[in-house]
Design a protein around this nucleic acid. Sequence first.
DNA 1: TTGTATGCGTTATCAT
DNA 2: ATGATAACGCATACAA
Lengths: 331, 331
Amino acid sequence: MKQTHTPPTMKDVAAEAGVSLGTVSKVVNGLPVGEPYRQKVLRAIDKLNYQVNSYAQGLKASRTNTIALLIPNTRNPFFAELVHHINRQLLKRKYRMLLCTTESDTDLEQTYITMVQQNKVDGIIGLTYNPNLVIDASVPFVSIDRVLSPSLPCVACDNFAGGQLAAEKLADLGCKHVAFLRIGSALNNEPNKRKSGFENGCANRNLHYDMMILNDGEPLTRFRTFLEEHRTAEGFTLDGIFCVTDYIAYCVLRFLDELGVDVPGEVQVIGFDGTRAFGSENYICSTIVQPVEEIAATCVDLILQEDIAAKPSLICLPVRFADGGTTRPET
Amino acid sequence: MKQTHTPPTMKDVAAEAGVSLGTVSKVVNGLPVGEPYRQKVLRAIDKLNYQVNSYAQGLKASRTNTIALLIPNTRNPFFAELVHHINRQLLKRKYRMLLCTTESDTDLEQTYITMVQQNKVDGIIGLTYNPNLVIDASVPFVSIDRVLSPSLPCVACDNFAGGQLAAEKLADLGCKHVAFLRIGSALNNEPNKRKSGFENGCANRNLHYDMMILNDGEPLTRFRTFLEEHRTAEGFTLDGIFCVTDYIAYCVLRFLDELGVDVPGEVQVIGFDGTRAFGSENYICSTIVQPVEEIAATCVDLILQEDIAAKPSLICLPVRFADGGTTRPET
DNA sequence: TTGTATGCGTTATCAT
DNA sequence: ATGATAACGCATACAA
């Protein structure tokens, strides 16, 4: 009777089946082996309930079938959706996913990157706001939504087109005086293009717009003040609002409700991301929808792609508008 | 000049530092080593940018510092929150997390469990609705919210107390005729205790209640019909509703809005889970809050605990009520 | 076609 | 205190 506490290895299987180690290895890896041998090995595997140790495999092959995903958190529905689809894409390709939620903490991000490199993952997909991470060139990296460096490929939705689409939608829906609300630093990252696109769209349609940009630390209640100022005796002086994310739109909708402003009657609101409550069918507001599934698939394709040289530095995926009840029905 | 494409190993470091392999290993693992040697090794590590290969480590130690988390998805905010906190707890203990989203697909779950065992993870934390998974006894398993087997420890919130609390809250808030809305099979899993607790609470307070239970496949619009039936000429005949999850509460609130029933004026609604929009401070409805952070910490504690024998089979964590605006202010 | 032997990077047990 | 060496489980080049 052998020690029961250590899981069976190929050697055990070989002994049980009365064949050699190499034969077992071939059976396990689907290499050609004489049928009677194959049967014996298969029976032994079944009997011992053998499972390959993929760490030993990884040690040999320096391939681990594992990809790390760095993301600020999983609470934001957009991130959650991303995690979900990347996970599914990886599974489809028989890859495992190491999840690293960073809370946008720079040190934490760096800790994770180091940890993840120690773990010899086959690649990293990362959504990070930190422009100066030290990423070892030896491990493939694909960035989401942020161009970190020309040498690191980035996958994003077409933020510029999204901003423009929002402006044009509002114009189409009859708005005359709109506002753009955003938060975050003025760094030139992808989401900033939403602003440029919006400005462009407004210009195209001769749409007048106000803009309110909050810095990172400022409370969202500033927006409430902003909105309050637009409530005059003659009614609400804005008829359209574009929020740079659905989260902001969500807050703005609350403020408008508190202020007694009717949506979409008095003012129409468009967000950005395509957030759906509980992953259901319902958008929480009218919104510019990011193609999350395509973004996920593209990231996974890129990270698993062999020749890194062929990787483009920025891939923009198309967005679309979706009615979530905070705009008037289209005619 | 050595081959540049393979990452440096301990051997390389040893050569660079002019010491032996064992010495490097000791330095890396913080074992006592003569200071001048230590310095030499450290310098070499720095120069070569050496990182330990934790797969090789795992092969030696049969410990991988990795825990797998099985969860239906990350889109449901409660799950997302769970993922987030488990991830943080694991990181705090220097463990990595393999995320496996299963969509409650039985085959997928089994696939993942097998995959994960091949990967020789140190343990699995799983939230699964599938009662007959084959889980190798050799890998520690902790279940969330479902008692899968007496031998597998389970961590859950006190669902019974939660149901009871909901009933008592509604009674305290002046309700006379309430309803309980739930979905899902009638299996005797943890969340079913919410029902029992609710019934118990109603009995305690002599609160009359209706109950509507949907089977797994049925559309939530059935609830709409149910609600519609309670809208009579004399007004809405229910003054309180307890929904078994916040998601259901969310849908119910939409239905009530469509039906023109005022919340919390005409009817007060309580959900279950403690879901907050975008992970912000705001609960999406008045709710029985699950102690997600404690659940996460408890799971991680349990899974990392050495002696499996000492693990209790069910740990219930306390819940609390939170006002989310769909109940009247407490006096 | 099958078996044997070596090495992957690390750790731990030995001598030195 | 440090250096050599075996072993972890697997894959593969090579010998039989």
